[in-house]
Design a binder for these strands. Structure first.
Length: 732
RNA sequence: GGGCGCUUAGCUCAGUUGGUUAGAGCAUCUCAUUUACACUGAGAGGGUCGGGGGUUCGAAUCCCUCAGCGCCCACCA
């Protein structure tokens, strides 16, 4: 009797939710349950992956869907293989992104800004928003079929993770690796906070560049695209060997520039390229990183002329409180009027923008917290190749050692070079942010006394630092903070270091590098052994998907239309590591047909084996034995592809075998035998059909978990397919 | 400027570390189809592997060179 479910074409919408519920109810996403129920040996090898925590600002997009699918394939494979497999979910508080999103909402709905609400009230609003957003993204992840252990779900800003952050900060502070310094930093006037170098996006632009002299008597011309900053100039730097300017070095000129009295000293500094432009640089120490360093070398004063709101602070009435863009025009007009402008030309340059708020970055001198990446310290307990316990090292050296010693493998491996190249150029990391949402810096002040501790000082009268930490500080701890560190939990001992870190290549520096920094330093191990980087998911025309362009494909829409299995395998086949990857609705539609093909083939196998006793193992005919043998080789082949992270190939091979070997050849050939063959031939064929089908459902399960699990049940199996043993050969 | 890639069928891409006649999916064309499946089957056409040079018994694969495309980082006086 055919199961009535099989009488209609496969309808994913009818089955997926109930299948996912079965998995959840079984508790088998949790490795401990797999052990306690006897499906996994207590001493089996472990396999662990931490899900890259999606930001709580957003909804699931194709990139997340790809991440979830690739990781779920690894996880389901290892679970079936018998490993104690942990895939741990969580979300990221995404400090600046989240706060600015909620601020926007509040401003739109109530016309209020952050200071109208105050710190406490804004944080309350954010917490409410975050809870809603978190629920959404968890729900959506489940819709992708992800076999995540929800009982261990973590959040980068919950209490346990906060303890980890404070502990990490304190240790780095005590080792002298975290320091506070007054320096020119990247200030985002829109977000009202500092950001790190990596949070800047450079926008190509064509801007006017002005070549001018400060005054008629000034001997050297300089060029700039930002004339408004020139009221903060303290020097003109030339190359020490530049014959044209040598005679002026050491002179100081007092000038009234656009109504502002300035004092400009001519200095010699080898950082200046004599062949570029006029060969002279106006030095604005307060509003340029490079100039700040020049000024330090020459003991020059720092004169800020722009404030946090990108407005002028000079006393001259025509400039005071003007926006920088207005001041620029005013000064250009003044230069023209005074006949000081020598040349105006359009040049190509980059404008620095904050990636989260799109605010134009204003370099400002500020007191901020930094992590020193090139400072020597004494390494604690090390379990890393090439690094000894107690050895003097820098964070940079730790970060480089993991690739030098091959303790971490990148896929594709050219990212090893990209990573190394980035570390070589790495500067100290600015970690303090002037926003309210995030981990508050665990430092307290009382007069001149500074106290850093995991907890607040017991003594009265201390005030905590107002700033919060860069969101990547807490993300950097993700592989072990999720396992309970700094507590010495069983989870931490069991599942760390993790096996694989799988994520988009675009956050290699933001996240992957920071995890390596934090883990090598704090734990003395690598955070993971393999880094699998997937590319950006693009449209069929190769464009980046974006909400504002309206070309974004919603994975949940695709799931609803074609089934989650179709979406999943579409995101795998043709998607090798490291390369951007195009997806189209046509492709997904094609794999919906594949799910249906599996469905129909199963119906045929069931209907033509109804009189077959499955407990029997008949002797196979020579032809059948050959197919069986070849299929066993195929299993090994596909298993090797999965082991070696070639999911895109494994998926394609499974697809091709099922459709064009099993369905088109084996099944077709069997029809003749079943209807006209001898009883022995018939039994052989029936056994072969069933065994090939059963085994292929197992092999396909990590890729297409829903349809395979459903059919596994239809075929009369009581045990869930998700914890069947990974096949070594085709059996019943 | 530094770094990393890419260029293979009309399109999107494989090609597992050099080995018969270079593959897949989609698209196209022809035919079939009352019997698991039209969300189908059988078959066909289509490539001098970006150009040139070299190494080798043998090169899409290794080396050199030229051209085009892309990404990342830096500079931006």
């Amino acid at each position: 009797m055919i199961d009535e479910r099989l009488l209609k074409p496969y309808n994913p919408a009818e089955t997926e939710d109930s299948i996912y519920k079965k998995w959840i109810d079984s508790g088998l996403f949790n490795p401990d349950t797999c052990v306690s129920k006897g499906f996994t040996k207590p001493d089996a090898p472990t396999f662990s992956i931490m899900l890259p925590p999606p930001n709580v600002t957003g909804v699931l997009h194709m990139g997340h869907a790809a991440t979830l699918t690739i990781e779920d394939i690894m996880v389901r494979y290892h679970r079936m293989k018998g490993d104690r497999t942990l895939w741990l979910p969580g979300t990221d508080h995404a400090a600046i992104a989240t706060q600015s999103k909620v601020e926007k909402i509040v401003e739109k709905e109530e016309g209020k800004r952050r200071h109208d609400l105050g710190r406490e009230e804004l944080l309350k609003r954010i917490a409410t928003f975050v809870e809603g957003s978190r629920t959404t993204i968890v729900h959506q992840s489940k819709k992708m079929g992800a076999s995540l252990d929800w009982s261990r779900e973590a959040f980068t800003l919950d209490e346990e993770r906060n303890l980890a952050v404070r502990t990490a900060f304190k240790k780095m502070y005590d080792d002298g690796l975290i320091y506070r310094k007054f320096r020119v930093v990247n200030w985002d006037p829109k977000g009202q906070t500092t950001i790190s170098d990596d949070e800047i996006i450079y926008e190509a632009a064509k801007s006017p560049q002005y070549t001018f002299k400060y005054s008629k008597d000034f001997p050297i011309a300089i060029a700039t695209t930002r004339p408004e900053t020139k009221v903060g100039d303290v020097a003109v730097a030339v190359h020490p060997d530049d014959a044209r300017y040598k005679k002026y070095v050491g002179n100081t000129y007092d000038i009234v520039f656009a109504g502002v009295p300035i004092s400009v000293k001519i200095i010699a500094d080898s950082a200046v390229d004599p062949a570029y432009g006029t060969g002279a640089v106006g030095v604005t120490p307060a509003h340029s990183m490079v100039d700040w360093e020049i000024a330090n070398r020459h003991n020059l004063p720092i004169i800020p002329v722009i404030n946090e709101f990108a407005k002028m602070t000079v006393a001259a009435p025509e400039l005071k409180d003007k926006k920088v863009t207005e001041a620029r025009q005013i000064i250009v007009e003044w230069l023209k009027k005074e006949n000081l402008l020598i040349k105006e030309e359009i040049i190509e340059n980059n404008i620095s923008k904050a990636e989260r708020t799109n605010g134009t970055i204003e370099p400002l001198p500020k007191l901020q917290w930094f992590i020193a990446v090139e400072k020597k310290f004494k390494m604690g307990a090390s379990n890393m190749a090439g690094i000894k316990t107690g050895q003097e090292v820098t964070l940079k050296e730790l970060m480089l050692s993991v690739v030098k010693e091959n303790s971490i493998t990148f896929l594709p491996d050219n990212f090893t070079k990209i990573y190394t190249n980035w570390i070589d150029k790495l500067h100290d990391w600015c970690i303090s942010r002037q926003i309210w949402y995030g981990h508050r810096i665990p430092v307290w002040y009382k007069g001149d006394t500074v106290y850093c501790g995991v907890d607040a000082p017991k003594e009265e009268g201390y005030i905590q630092d107002e700033d919060t930490l860069d969101t990547w500080f807490s993300s950097g701890l993700w592989t072990f903070s999720t396992l309970g560190w700094p507590k010495e939990t069983l989870d931490f001992k069991t599942f760390h270091p993790t096996n694989v870190l799988e994520t988009g290549k675009d956050i290699l520096f933001f996240w992957v590098a920071r995890m390596i920094l934090m883990t090598t330093y704090l734990i003395g191990t690598v955070p993971f052994k393999t880094v699998y980087l997937h590319g950006t998911v693009r449209t069929d025309k190769g464009e980046k998907m974006s909400k504002s362009l309206g070309n974004a494909m919603d994975p949940l829409d695709m799931n609803a239309k074609y089934g989650t299995d179709a979406t999943r395998i579409s995101l795998i086949i043709g998607n090798g590591p490291g390369n951007d990857f195009r997806i189209s609705e046509d492709k997904i539609r094609g794999y919906k047909n594949f799910a249906n093909k599996i469905w129909n083939a199963t119906r045929f196998v069931i209907s033509s084996t109804e009189d077959f006793d499955r407990s029997k193992q008949p002797k196979l005919t020579a032809d059948d034995a050959k197919i069986h043998e070849e299929f066993n080789i195929f299993i090994k082949d596909v298993t090797k592809d999965i082991e070696e992270y070639r999911f895109y190939i494994a998926g394609e091979k499974l697809y091709h075998y099922f459709w064009h070997n099993f369905a088109d050849i084996t099944i077709e050939r069997t029809k003749e035998i079943i209807f006209h063959g001898t009883p022995a031939e018939k039994e052989s064929a029936q056994w072969l059909l069933l065994s090939l089908l059963f085994t292929q459902l197992k092999l396909l399960h990590p890729f297409m978990p829903f349809v395979t699990e459903e059919l596994w049940g239809v075929l009369g199996n009581k045990k869930l397919l998700m914890i069947e043993s990974w096949p070594k050969e085709s059996t019943l």
